[in-house]
Nucleic acid binder design. Structure first.
Lengths: 163, 163
DNA sequence: TAAAATTAAATTGTACGCAAATTAATTTTG
DNA sequence: CAAAATTAATTTGCGTACAATTTAATTTTA
């Protein structure tokens, strides 16, 4: 009588809570695995992984504002402000107030920052090798994750509605 | 002559570096999306997501050592020690030195910690809804991520070899 | 068995990541 | 056009993460 779960309402078995069953934990673990894989490759340049993401964004489009970079990466200025200062101190980017709107700060690659792009292709290849995935597999998994991220964000937006 | 990329060696196009193309960034973004989705659900209990992961682990197997929990979650004692102190302060776990080996600290659920497990099923259901994935989809994506994580970890191990 | 090596946690220092408060500049609007 | 509202960055405070160091306990081994 006491052995079978409480309310039959959900009927979720105990194993449903196991870490290995959780998609969120699989994502969380993969993030850490990527971080560890990138670390030795980025250490040579004194970069952290989030800093590298900012450079990836700037290599595609130089001269973005802090806000724009935040939109690209899903980070807020509270995270980016100190990070960008470190990137500046490392000599990879410069920051200057937009003369047309002094509230905004424009972040631009330095010569060193631009030069680093060549190295990024090597890092990319190295990581690609480490994943052991075909381009097709990478593409599928990436797209599935993007859809997942989108749905999670959407459901957040719903919960925020003023009804 | 100057327009076409440098060494034909890799022949990776510029777009290969785009954030949207990166599997690592898709994983990174999904992690943040999960964190944001969990936050309002966990705030009610004064829990962070990593703290919740520790509870998930303890609900499966109570009374683990710090090291064992670290192996389950892929975290080291530098992260877990302060985290577990907060879980203790919140009244969800107790910590005590193993009398048989005073180096080890055994972490056990309190009555409140055990009670919370019921709520976890609701959180699980809520997140499941937010992902908008079928059980089959979740399973596939999760397994693909586990394989990816494994391969990344393996390639790390290789790089550490003393050859 | 005493010294050396190993092990488990905790601690320290650096860097995200985010919420909330602050500051400064620009828009809105009354 | 001046006050109010909004916006962009910065700052502050808290909680991960992780490397490196420290402390204490246990094993190894000499």
């Amino acid at each position: 009588m006491t052995t079978k779960a409480a309310k039959s309402e959900d009927a979720l078995p105990d194993e449903a809570l196991a870490l290995g069953q959780q998609l969120c934990f699989a994502v969380y673990s993969a993030t850490h695995a990527f971080n560890r894989a990138y670390k030795p490759l980025l250490d040579r340049f004194g970069l952290t992984y989030p800093q590298y993401l900012v450079l990836l964004a700037l290599w595609q489009q130089d001269g973005m504002t802090v806000k724009r970079i935040g939109e690209e990466l899903g980070l807020d200025s509270g995270t980016l402000s100190p990070l960008l200062k470190r990137l500046e101190a490392a000599g990879y980017v410069g920051r200057m107030r937009d003369p047309a709107d002094e509230r905004q700060v424009i972040v631009s690659l330095t010569e060193n920052g631009r030069r680093l792009k060549i190295e990024a292709f090597k890092i990319l290849a190295e990581i690609g090798r480490a994943t052991g995935c075909s381009l097709a597999e990478v593409g599928e998994l990436r797209d599935a994750l993007h859809r997942l991220t989108e749905r999670l964000a959407d459901s957040q937006a719903e919960g925020t509605q003023t009804d």
